[in-house]
Design a protein around this nucleic acid. Structure first.
Lengths: 351, 351
DNA sequence: CTGAAAGCGCTTACAG
DNA sequence: CTGAAAGCGCTTACAG
């Protein structure tokens, strides 16, 4: 006859709590899961026992019993970036609450097919849902997977609302609008803007917000003040070179990403310019580099970990309730952060 | 009578595989867990069935049955840094393999007691082991917790071997030695070095390696070429100011962290100097900033995600085998990366 | 409102 | 070498 295992750990379980509280394990479970229809007296007794014993539910058991056993996949590009850390942190916070495992898989951004392969591998490995950070959420062949495999997906910070899949993001248009308004309020009239190739939703939204602010201020469109490039450091240097060689250079440059803005600052320094006295610079994202350079960048802060947490929570909720997610964007707050990289032209005395 | 739950998901389980392979579930389990004493024929049959069915073990069930139900804690400081992402990634890789949950808890570096509180909270919440990234692993009051609560701990990249707790790290002394040797090989003789206050083991080890390389090259100690500060961007700027104002400035500055090196580059640019033509700069860590600035930094790469993965694996193994970890350091590989921030003084024609 | 029974998908500890 | 039994700590789906 099989022998029962010894209880090495003296673990406090549901039954321990039930015994102490003088109720059945079921009632303890009901209290813990906030089910209605438990008399206040019993609820109190259970809570007291939980407190006394320092009871912690066993997540594995919970996951197994609730037949959830959910696994969600997360695709990521770049182990170096702080972006991944933010995404991981938020996803973990939500996943831990639900006792859910998260399967992380990297892909090679240099290889066109790598992301698709990684996504399909993840799906075949049996994940129940997929979290899609940028820039994948702008990749149609990835988005297509949702329909092909009937796998729920949610996009992180896609820059604009997507038509077929739900997402969590800030309002990039409004945020860029606010930042440009700040630049205008500091007296800037000629503002250079760097955008990415048109396929980047984030960049398009930010440009739209920027233009709206200019328009409202009665500043006419000036194509010379829009520079289009790739979101790389090198192209940031090129943009700076372009803007500073104009007959009438802008007094401020709005980088649409902190990396780009940092490149501008670097280029200007090498030209012997002072920031912000000779040139103001603003970025977007509040990435670590925004406060690692000098002067620190005026920028827009979006909490990626918060976005990832909300998205994961939503995905898990819909999965466990077997309800469909609406293919809509949930907007979260952003914050314009003013640091030292933008001069106030209206108070020259203070410079 | 209680009714059995319906199998919504048509999930492939151990039993499905066993049926297909014509063996018992136990045998499938034995094959999957690489137990000895399974005939090759049965092993083959099982593997085939696994492949055909695309079977994936249910981690929750595995964790529950093996009574592991392990939870490990991870303390972290700064959600902004890419460091956390690396640590999380490595920890997750190992944790996922074991079906282990990881509980992440932040603390406020500005508040002396915050880290201690966070650690104690984590321990009271019932974790079975604790992963301690820098700089906590140089904090005696945290290290003390291991003995007080009998909780296994492992330190990440502590900079030097610790006496009471095991760690995984690179050989910082040897790495700094190698980097200084590279500087020497490129013809540099006057090399400025930035170190942190003595309590930083990482900095002390790196300084020791730097000095050993100089000594072997027959270059006498020059106290004027050692600058002591805090590991901040601001202090990097001060260090640069100091070194460049020397009557005989160094031809190269070794920053002992990439942040510091980046600050040096920035300061020099603002002085109108060219890097590396007028000044060479080297860093340490290969943090993202090392390749986000121009010129990109010559530095030492250590894979934090790799270190975190190895440490987590070791912790989990000792926990599940109920074996004690030896309080020794496991060394992992590092790599000296030569980029554009160091000039070769021996080939002036190439400048 | 409450709880005994069955089950989630595995592994442990054996007996054969 | 192989497998039937019991159990990990919960929750589901009921009956009372």
């Amino acid at each position: 006859m099989a022998r029962t295992r010894r209880n090495f750990s003296n673990r406090v379980t549901l039954s321990t709590v039930a015994e102490r509280a003088g109720v059945s394990p079921m009632t303890v479970s009901n209290v813990l899961n906030e089910k209605p229809n438990v008399t206040p007296a019993k609820r109190e007794a259970v809570m007291e026992a939980v407190r006394e014993l320092g009871y912690q539910p066993n997540r594995a058991a919970r996951a197994l019993a609730s037949a959830s056993a959910l696994r969600i996949g997360l695709l990521h590009r770049d182990t170096e970036s702080s972006f991944l850390g933010q995404v991981l942190l938020g996803t973990l916070r939500a996943a831990n609450r639900h006792g859910t495992e998260i399967a992380v898989r990297p892909f090679d951004p240099a290889d066109e097919k790598s992301a698709l392969k990684a996504a399909e591998g993840l799906i075949r490995s049996g994940i129940d849902g997929l979290i899609v950070p940028p820039p994948l959420c702008e990749n149609p062949s990835i988005m297509e997977l949702q329909a092909r495999y009937h796998i729920p997906m949610i996009a992180l910070a896609p820059g604009a609302s997507l038509e077929t899949i739900p997402s969590v993001r800030i309002d990039d248009e409004a945020a860029a609008y606010d930042l440009t308004r700040l630049l205008l309020a500091r007296g800037h009239r000629r503002i250079g803007f760097i955008r990415f190739a048109s396929s980047h939703l984030v960049s398009a939204s930010r440009e739209a917000g920027h233009r709206r602010a200019l328009q409202e201020a009665g500043i006419p469109d000036d194509p010379a003040l829009i520079w289009t490039g790739r979101p790389t450091y090198e192209d940031g240097l090129k943009a700076a070179e372009y803007f500073l060689s104009l007959a009438e250079p802008p007094s401020a440059i709005f980088g649409s990403s902190d990396d780009l803005a940092a490149a501008i600052v670097n280029y200007a320094h090498r030209q012997g310019m002072r920031i912000p006295e000779d040139l103001s610079v603003a970025g977007f994202d509040d990435a670590p580099i925004a406060s690692q350079i000098w002067p620190q960048l005026t920028t827009v802060r979006q909490s990626i970990s918060n976005i990832a947490e909300i998205a994961t929570e939503y995905l898990l909720k819909s999965l466990s309730e077997r309800s469909e997610m609406a293919p809509e964007a949930q907007l979260v707050d952003y914050e314009v952060i003013e640091r030292q990289s933008v001069a106030n032209l209206l108070e020259p005395a203070k410079v």
